[in-house]
Amino acid sequence: MIEIKNVNKYFDGFKVLDNMNMKVEKGSIYGLVGVNGSGKTTLLKHLTGVFKPDSGEITIEGEPVFDNPKVKSEVAYIIDDLLCLGLRNLEEWGKYYSSIYPQWNGERFSELIKELGLNPKNNLSKFSKGMKKQAAFALAMSTCPKLLVLDEPLDGLDPLVRRKVTKHIVDDVAEREMTVVISSHNLREIESLCDTVGIISEGNMQIEKEMDELKSDVCKIQAVFKTEPDLSGLNVLVREKRGSVDLMIIRGDIEATEDYLRQFDPLVLDILPLSLEEVFIYEAGGENDEFSKLLF
């Protein structure tokens, strides 16, 4: 659905996006992670048609997004600053959106703001940061977009509201095949929501994989061997001995790894699941790598 091909973007001679490539399937939830200044927000602004790439192309369902109102009418972008247009309350925003988004669903908007406990007549300047975020979410979801672009969507929301927001996103993806691109520093949030992950560093896509594939590619082994095993047939990323216990992070197919280790007749052999955080750390080459900054 979304395809970003060889996109480059310079800010005053500084390369912010460096030959960026990205592919997002229709109906998927794509998590975009990267350190501050890695180019996430810039990429999202390209996706929403705000920025024009210096080179390369960005298409949504085969059509370029920049300066294309037809495509943009199917893209919802959640903004931080609801006061930027001078509209006073959610009622005015609702009317405004209803006039510019063809798929606007007023009933859904009413239901959403009711569910989130927002008064449509209250002045937006009196809303808290979290309330503004909820309001922006309600507006975006009510446009029934084909693509929802979220920049730090759950930041500043309480757990209850997070759950509601997440539920609505997942429901829309399931029911309408809405595509979602989320940028976040919170990897646990990405892990719980996304089915595909892209890691950006210095404006370049370092890793882009489905979540399951990413997790299944690296495993954590806890084993006790009678004799020292020959591990030369495995891609061991990290090995640490704690007494007789061997702790290993190994890249490769989990079943093949298990079969390989079993031939050394281990006394204990436990294969433990890795969290996304751990995957990033070990995939990226250890805790000293910049990806560790995402976690700590």
Binding site: G49, V50, K70, V75, D81, L85
Partner: peptide, 10 residues
């Protein structure tokens, strides 16, 4: 924020 938002509208 204003310029990003307005130009993300259809």
């Amino acid at each position: 924020s204003g310029t990003a938002f307005v130009h993300s509208l259809p």
